[in-house]
Design a protein around this nucleic acid. Structure first.
Lengths: 352, 352
DNA sequence: CGACGCTGAGACAACGTTGACTGGGCGAGA
DNA sequence: TCTCGCCCAGTCAACGTTGTCTCAGCGTCG
């Protein structure tokens, strides 16, 4: 809490083309031409205009420009994620930003916190600012409120989950197959009693992963037991509690499939607190930093978040460039990373 | 890569107030009044206008509005961070977003990757879009290029590092004192040979932390030895290499002060690879997820990123509300979190 | 030497909206 | 009954820019 000096505020207002034109002794339209790189302007005049602009500290007003311009483009896209602070959303944002930057496009970011109401509000706020396109990780299950915007030319791509009640492009991870891979991996290590701990079942990705879990068990002829299935939401605390509960059962699981990031971490904490990290196997869905450095390392089904983000951004810009092909959903593969926790063998009598 | 249906694109263009007015049978100005909540409109007319707007799917154009409006506010601020994907930046972004949201303000985000050129480009891009204010984690050491914008009424707050050659508000963490605390903590555990591993010295925060390191050693009458000081940048790989190097010295350090996030994590990896995690002490600057779950847990000087972000956003909005008090720099305290790695005692002959 | 095309710059209107002003209708007070 | 003032909706211009059109000047070719 230091230093200072008289703060010079809003002394003069921002110069406009009019003022630059006056100083350079040309018409306003000529200034416009110079700043738009129109080649039919006398180099001497270009120099005079540039000089005048520099002297005044002139910067073009993109909002006015986009208003007048034919295409009405704002060179801005909107991005709605679950929470800008979480690693998945952060990496996604950055990847989209990278693609956008190549085209001089900036990204407006909003966090939804899984609140469908907020999703609508923020989507509207973005539309009101006339963003050229939207990248949305939807919180709700009904995006029909965007149907109007879609018809009036706002391009949009959904990420991680498909849009509900709206025909739109989407990029998703291979959730169901990833879950199947995870469970099969545990089965291969001899486990027959595998708990499922995941996010609320109302969340589409969670539902798909759960579906994969059930499918894999069914194929292996293992009876489904909802005693060892918990849809706990995405908090570490809830995951810790759930882990403790299932392991306190009279017939506890020998392996855990944790289908969401924070759930995985919560389970890791719980296992360590109980000293079971080396005897209960675990495979998590979604990789996380330092998963490899724990002991044992945590085996995961890793999503390729960069690929998801890049694909989504590229699809969006292709639409903006006029692609009118039918909408599609691109599925990005996941892959198993073995680090130790998923390879812990089942204890007790061997069923092989 | 599935599904599809004829994609209906840009069929009609977005409706305007003119069209709503025509449908409702009123003047365009009346529509404007309705959407701005002006109370002197007949409720029956309000209803008619709203109905017409809904039928057309009308949404006001904020860019046009802000152009015409007296204050010229766009209800958008710009945020430039080091990398939207890294946890520090992501949390910062989210905190600023939260404060902005309360005021109906959206946030444009850009990543600088420590590139001063990019900083200028993106700052310009934001100014060209007439953002109401800027929150900047500066990459360069010279922000005088913003002097014009400052004088023409663009408010700005710098975060994590103060602005160079520009008198502007800033919110920074207690870097020097935090480093002193870290080193003192290691001294208290009996260490006399403490390595410094940090980001490039050209980065202001790194320089301040390094300064704290030297100061603490000086106060403790320990001779400075640049054999065990490495300014390695912010990559894990470089940190791993540096850690290996200093520990391979004939007179290796018994403790490490790692002054940056990725450096800390790199050192953690290197120590584990060498099996030294329980014999070489370590204190890191900046907390990171799962630091507590490692064994030993990693002791850190934690920055209060939320507080930094919130403070910066609040300062910015106070300026936007007309605060013309002298600029100031707010310093947010850091705190030591003991988790084990920093409490490992010095081996060998005791000097006490 | 005159008509013509071309080059380069300016005039004007418009993008979608709102600030400032105008004007019609109506009730109240003289 | 007339006037004054108020209430409410409409007209007009302007925000900063660019698309369209116009026009002056000049070189060229028949």
């Amino acid at each position: 809490m230091t230093q200072g000096e008289a703060a010079p505020r809003s002394t003069r207002s921002r110069p406009t083309m009019r003022e630059v034109a006056a100083l350079a002794g040309v018409a306003i339209k000529t200034v416009s031409r110079v700043f738009n790189g129109v080649p039919t302007v006398d180099p001497a005049i270009v120099a005079r205009v540039r000089e005048a602009a520099d002297k005044l500290g002139y910067r073009p007003n993109l909002t006015a420009s986009s208003l007048r311009r034919g295409d009405g483009r704002t060179a801005t896209i909107g991005m709605l994620v679950e929470d800008a602070a979480n690693p998945f959303s952060a990496v996604l944002t950055r990847t989209v930003e990278n693609v956008a930057r190549e085209r001089g496009v900036l990204v407006l970011v909003g966090s939804l916190d899984e609140d469908p109401e907020r999703e609508r509000e923020l989507a509207r706020a973005l539309v009101d600012r006339r963003v050229d396109g939207l990248v949305i990780v939807p919180a709700g299950r009904d995006q029909s409120y965007l149907i109007n915007e879609q018809h009036t030319g706002t391009c949009m791509v959904f990420v991680d989950r498909e849009a509900g009640l709206l025909d739109a492009d989407a990029v998703v991870s291979e959730n169901r197959q990833g879950a199947i891979t995870a469970v099969n991996h545990l089965l291969k290590a001899g486990h027959r009693r595998i708990a499922y701990l995941g996010d609320r079942a109302s969340i589409p990705t969670a539902a798909q992963r759960f579906d994969g879990y059930r499918h894999a068990l069914e194929v292996a002829h293992i009876e489904y037991d909802d005693e060892i299935v918990r849809h706990v939401g995405s908090s570490e605390e809830a995951a810790i509690a759930a882990t403790e509960q299932v392991l306190a059962l009279s017939d506890p699981p020998t392996a855990l499939f944790t289908s969401q990031n924070f759930v995985t971490i919560g389970a890791v904490r719980a296992l360590r607190a109980m000293g079971l990290q080396d005897s209960v196997a675990q495979v998590g869905f979604d990789d996380f930093p330092l998963a490899d450095i724990l002991s044992p390392g945590i085996s995961v089904i890793a999503q390729d978040v960069e690929q998801v983000g890049r694909t989504a951004a590229e699809m969006l810009f292709r639409r903006l460039d006029g692609d009118e092909s039918p909408t599609r959903t691109v599925t990005v593969p996941t892959r198993l990373i073995e680090r130790g926790s998923g390879e812990i063998p089942a204890e007790g009598p061997c069923h092989d």
